[in-house]
Amino acid sequence: MLASLKRLPGASWLIHPVTLVYLVVIAIWITAGIMKPGFARIGHLRYLLELAAVIGIAAAGQTLVIIAAGIDLSVAAVITFAAILTPIVSVGWDPTGLLGILFVLAITTAIGAVNGVGVVLLRVHPLIITLATATILQGSLLLIAGGSAVSTTNPAVVWLGNERLWGFPVTILTWLVVAAATLVVLHRTVLGGWLYAIGTNPRASRLAGVNAPLTLITVYAISGASAGLAGLLLLGMNRQGYVGIGEPYLLGTIAAVVVGGTSILGGRGSYLGTIAGAILLVTLTALITVVNASPGLRMILFGGLVLAMLLIAGRVQETR
């Protein structure tokens, strides 16, 4: 039946994996709304989207990196870093708090760029260099904050995480802006084309004149910036940063990307899928947190959930 559907002109998008993920999300929302009336309240759905915004924004950079056949394992550490550094660098004489935000975003972008330089110049496997960066960040966080939680009063951060603009939470609006920018970069710019080329066949892309070093450093820098922005939103929503705040987001971003139909081997996929993946992940997590579970059980459910999603969506074809 699927095959015959495929042959219908213009209907191929209907059975596209990304569409399926969106349909699954809507089906879950409707089912859960009927089973448990509070779930489909507009306030609750809006809250879910706010949570998804943090994953979705951090996953924007991750999507670009994975399409270029890389991976960024420093996402969680960068989020934590941003959430802890911002309260510390937000100075009292700047009433807007924007200075602190710009400073932190600049630093996280630089961290991402360092990852990129390691991948390009030292030819270190992205897995290693980003894991090494994450470890260095963890160490420096202990130096900076001594392991205790820090709360923020930075007005710009609080505004980002809590305010509404024309009835919409600023977090969701920020995500919309990030999503639009990411989609434009991926599908309407040379950089986007280069990413797919590098991810598909690095050697061929080089022969075709793709500036791989510049492209890779740029995407890792973007990944650092997007993780930093996600950290700012998370800090704004919690009003507090602490060691481990970013922990769930490493698996979260990678799961959102892979479930959204982007190949972990690079070269295929789109941010449209990642958006759906992030919303699906948050929805299912909300369903399991309805059950009153201990931290250990919650970890198991989260890991099991991601694994189940991967079983359905993340399989790679192996040639034999």
Binding site: I71, L127, L250, L251, I254, A255, V258, I264, L265, S294, P295, G296, L297, R298, M299, I300, L301, F302, G303, G304, V306, L307, L310, L311, G314, R315, V316, Q317, E318
Partner: peptide, 26 residues
């Protein structure tokens, strides 16, 4: 057997295994 990339499987498994460890000894 199911052909899912090792990196994502083991990352997800690390949550499940870590969760079990926390259940055994909070």
């Amino acid at each position: 057997l199911l052909r899912i990339p090792a990196i994502v499987v083991t990352l997800a498994a690390s949550f499940i295994i870590g969760g079990i460890a926390l259940l055994v000894m909070p």
